[in-house]
Amino acid sequence: MQFGIFSVGDVTPDPTTGRTPTERERIKAMVRIAQKAEEVGLDVFATGEHHNPPFVPSSPTTMLGYIAATTEKLILSTSTTLITTNDPVKIAEDYAMLQHLADGRVDLVMGRGNTGPVYPWFGQDIRQGIPLAVENYAMLHKLWREDVVDWEGKFRTPLQGFTATPRPLDGIPPFVWHGSIRSPEIAEQAAFYGDGFLHNHIFWPKEHTARMVQFYRQRFAHYGHGTAEQAIVGLGGQFFMRKNSQDAVKEFRPYFDNAPVYGHGPSLEEFSTQTPLTVGSPQQVIDRTLSFREYVGDYQRQSFLIDHAGLPLKTVLEQLDLLGEILPTLRSEFAARRAPGTPDAPTHASLLAKQQSLATVTE
């Protein structure tokens, strides 16, 4: 089981002080948060991709390349790589380059994002969002697996005899998760390729998450990649933690009430009941997180959103310290509940070992 954090990189005023960090401060804070994630023993740091205020991570590979140089073990990922508005050739080359620089510590989450105007900014039509996601990923999948590619589709000019450079490290493309909140077509796409499916899981009730994951598992098995239980599943989540639950609620409430996404809507208590948001003590976070398995089955990656809504860097680093303290318990409890034969999340090392094993068998 992998544990990590993901950031959307929002630049949001702190509602308790009224201060808004500069873009430079927010970017530097994200780097420090990633470094701290490794220090406390987490497995993954993921950054979002946005091209509009109030967000700063418009160039995920730039940020992840910098983080790669300052970490040793951390898997570097994305919480969304915009498969609809990025050119697949550029994705293929950028993330292969990052693979080499990071010695394979790279995977990524393909998604459509949550900002409608981004489509015309990059010359695309939002009404074609799903077809773009399907066609662009089919092209990317081919670019990473074939040295010379001929390609013709609906949404871009054809390729003839094209080679993306550099080639993936050891001939192994980065592992891909397909991220979605509500689109079964994306779960279907993940299942078709035998890729991972990551459900955002922070805005919707557990029943919705369970339906989406179950659909992906069934289709994964349908396409012959293994049993439904062997499908590769990731979940999002979010928490705010203090040693005392009352202190957590009191401190987090102004941030929740003024958050850009869900502020001025349901109360903190209502939202915590209706979604996986957990605001409370370390034990409450442990218990709530362990409960996710009850409705999605054994899964491979748990990512938390903790640096949003204007929370200052000092507070986020304190949250990471607390997460580091409960991490051994989460690891041991998930492991104790895990059904035999449940696969681990693929990594570059495990995919390389599998490739070498298959090569040995065929020799």
Rank of each mutant, 00 (worst) to 15 (best):
216 Y>F: 07
324 G>S: 13
80 T>I: 06
168 P>N: 11
232 I>R: 14
205 P>K: 14
49 E>M: 00
248 A>W: 15
337 R>S: 11
242 R>M: 11
171 G>T: 08
114 N>W: 07
250 K>R: 08
177 W>T: 01
264 H>L: 03
308 H>M: 12
164 A>H: 04
236 G>P: 14
14 D>I: 02
199 H>A: 03
250 K>P: 00
139 M>I: 09
227 T>C: 07
1 M>E: 01
256 F>S: 05
147 D>W: 12
61 T>D: 00
142 K>E: 04
119 Y>V: 00
21 P>D: 02
199 H>V: 01
304 F>P: 15
286 I>F: 01
326 I>E: 11
105 R>T: 05
168 P>M: 05
236 G>A: 07
52 N>G: 14
275 T>F: 09
308 H>Q: 11
118 V>R: 00
80 T>G: 11
10 D>E: 08
56 V>N: 09
289 T>G: 05
69 A>M: 15
146 E>N: 06
45 F>E: 15
15 P>C: 11
195 D>A: 08
6 F>E: 12
264 H>E: 11
232 I>K: 13
2 Q>F: 10
33 I>A: 01
362 T>S: 13
94 D>W: 02
156 R>I: 07
182 R>A: 10
315 T>L: 00
210 A>P: 12
163 T>R: 12
255 Y>P: 04
37 A>D: 07
112 R>A: 01
278 T>F: 10
308 H>T: 04
329 T>P: 06
54 P>T: 04
49 E>W: 14
302 Q>W: 09
268 L>Q: 09
57 P>I: 04
269 E>S: 14
113 G>K: 02
289 T>P: 12
273 T>H: 12
137 Y>Q: 00
308 H>E: 08
293 R>L: 03
81 T>G: 04
4 G>T: 07
101 L>K: 10
82 L>D: 00
